[in-house]
Each structure stands twice: as C-alpha cells, then as structure tokens.
Computed example of a mutant assay.
Amino acid sequence: MNKVIRTSLVVMLLIAAAGTARAQQGLQIATVFQKYGKQKGVTMVELSKEMLETYQMTLYKSISFKDVEPFLATITHCLEADKKKAKKVKEVVAGGQIQSGYYQLPQLREDVNRFILFKTGKKGTATLIYIEGELDADDLITMLFMKKD
C-alpha cells in the first residue's frame, strides 16, 4: 500500500513539474530563468498556488539582477526573439537598449493570457517577469500601478 501511495505522489509531482516547464515552452526567456536563476547577485521568485489564485494567475516567475550587465546581451536576445510572437508590444528604448518592455503573447489555451515584462533600473539593476493566467492586460496594469497603503 505504501508503495502505491509513494508511486502516486511521484507521478503527481512529475506532472506538476511538467506543467510548469511547459508554461514557458517555446519562449526564449525560459533559458534566462534556467541559466541564471541560481547565480550570485540574482533573485528568482515563483509565487505559491495560494498567491497565484489571489491574483487570477496560474504562473508567476520573476528574476532580478543586481548587476544586469553580464546578462544583458542574453536577455535582450531572448526578448527580441519572443517579441516576434507577441500580439502586443510596448517598449522604451534608449541608446539602442531596451529600458522597459511589455509583451502580451498569444494564448496557448482559452482564458490563459501570457505576459512578459522587463525593466532596467538605476545602478544597472533589471527585472524580468513572466505571468500567465486569467487576468487580462487591464487587470495587470491595475495591479502594477495600484497604490500601496
């Protein structure tokens, strides 16, 4: 009996891991999270299921760089490739470099919207975010710019 339970748990974990991996499948930014997520000076965040449900999301991943310079060429290359698939693009470019970008990707499944957000900050910092879920573009903008009490 214990073997059946153990096997069932392993199968469920593998299915859950495959679902997360599939979420960014076909996107170049997935390599940024995989390659640099555990580097020194880099912080990667993935929200828990409870937090995701609060914001109508099925996946939220962010990666922040204290010093983006060593990674910027790779990130820019990945964003350029993924933006070709985007159905909505808003960017701020200065000196030929993307300072901030908002990319809405086509849905893979009905009612699952996908977004890539990128922003460089002061002193060479940067953050890359991937979000998918039921929230639409207006919900995302409201969430990003809502006042904190």
Rank of each mutant, 00 (worst) to 15 (best):
113 N>F: 13
142 T>N: 05
76 T>A: 06
114 R>H: 01
104 Q>E: 08
145 F>N: 08
72 L>E: 07
116 I>M: 00
122 K>T: 13
35 K>H: 06
103 Y>L: 05
85 K>F: 10
18 A>K: 01
106 P>G: 02
71 F>A: 08
129 I>V: 06
45 V>P: 01
50 E>G: 15
68 V>H: 05
110 E>V: 06
29 I>E: 03
107 Q>H: 05
86 A>Y: 03
108 L>H: 03
51 M>L: 14
135 L>V: 05
15 I>H: 05
12 M>S: 08
130 Y>F: 07
62 S>E: 01
113 N>K: 05
93 V>M: 04
5 I>T: 08
121 G>R: 08
84 K>D: 07
19 G>W: 05
47 L>V: 04
35 K>N: 09
84 K>A: 14
78 C>G: 07
21 A>F: 08
53 E>M: 14
3 K>E: 12
137 A>D: 13
43 T>I: 15
145 F>W: 11
19 G>Y: 11
20 T>H: 12
127 T>S: 11
5 I>M: 11
144 L>K: 10
127 T>F: 04
21 A>W: 04
120 T>N: 12
64 S>M: 11
32 V>S: 04
110 E>Q: 15
67 D>T: 12
66 K>R: 15
45 V>R: 04
10 V>K: 05
97 Q>P: 04
47 L>G: 00
37 G>C: 01
119 K>Q: 15
140 L>T: 04
107 Q>C: 10
31 T>I: 05
3 K>S: 14
83 K>A: 11
116 I>Q: 00
25 Q>E: 14
65 F>G: 03
83 K>V: 04
46 E>G: 09
92 V>Q: 11
51 M>E: 14
23 A>V: 02
44 M>L: 10
122 K>G: 14
123 K>T: 07
21 A>L: 08
67 D>L: 11
126 A>E: 11
149 D>W: 14
129 I>W: 06
15 I>G: 03
35 K>E: 07
57 M>R: 01
143 M>D: 11
133 G>V: 05
149 D>G: 13
27 L>Y: 03
105 L>W: 01
99 Q>R: 07
40 K>E: 13
53 E>F: 13
20 T>F: 14
103 Y>Q: 02
69 E>I: 04
68 V>Q: 07
20 T>V: 15
56 Q>S: 12
91 E>K: 07
72 L>A: 09
115 F>N: 01
